[in-house]
Design a protein around this nucleic acid. Sequence first.
DNA 1: TCTCAAACTGAAAATGATTGTCAAAACCGT
DNA 2: ACGGTTTTGACAATCATTTTCAGTTTGAGA
Lengths: 139, 139
Amino acid sequence: MTSGTNSSAPSRKPTRQQAAVAELLERSDDFTSAQTVHARLREAGAGVGLATVYRTLQSMVDAGTVDVLRTDDGEAVYRACSTHHHHHLVCRSCGRTVEVEGPAVEKWADKVASEHGYTGVTHTLEIFGSCADCTAADA
Amino acid sequence: MTSGTNSSAPSRKPTRQQAAVAELLERSDDFTSAQTVHARLREAGAGVGLATVYRTLQSMVDAGTVDVLRTDDGEAVYRACSTHHHHHLVCRSCGRTVEVEGPAVEKWADKVASEHGYTGVTHTLEIFGSCADCTAADA
DNA sequence: TCTCAAACTGAAAATGATTGTCAAAACCGT
DNA sequence: ACGGTTTTGACAATCATTTTCAGTTTGAGA
């Protein structure tokens, strides 16, 4: 129900395709959709099946090595991120992303939730804006 | 490009279908998907076309009378909310939703963003957990 | 009230991301 | 090399959402 690929095993050696997806993500700074990853890999010669891209991305999310969020139109986008808890400051135009932390926010969310009797609390927080370069370009 | 239905006009009298969708949302406490709204209206006798449900929901979002967010699987869900800026505390099991405010969080987000040179900042923040009732039921 | 154009509706078809299927291919330990 | 397990990938199936387009409704004016 969680992954289907591997669940609790110490993780095998990544296959060529898995490595390709992982490396592509490492190289790009912004969130990238599965479709785009697939297209880029194809262009780069190292073709990887679309289904495999989705599967790999999912297991990476499960493994916590990749963050995922949804664009306004519901498309899932992925990004290789640091493993500790953080949030994202994303440029609305170019996608440039900065990881940010806000310990105070975490505490606030937990407090508010427990005040209302909620347990097992998690939260999502993304900040959007126009980065300096894009703001300048718009002028 | 924004709505197609109405954009800057002082808004006409709502049609029977639009009223039906609006009333249904008013009556339900939790976030509801377009598909569900459509199904409920159909059951209730007052049938409204699926396309119309989507169109109506969208213009309500544009008008700011309804909040929208995405479930984990990317489905859009809607809820009639107060018009001032707020966030949601949503029960993961039953969907029970509480509107919460966090002025400090707003300021923090703006500050962090501007520190990184981002302008025109917006953000999304949702808190998920298991409400008291559901936590009890699980025991 | 009659008329016409603009706005609205809805059934059906189109779209597009994501997932499921399943036979072939890559791997692994023996 | 051999049998068993895992992964892959082309393709079909799903499913929410959008678009199309012809028929209906609405509103302002004659």
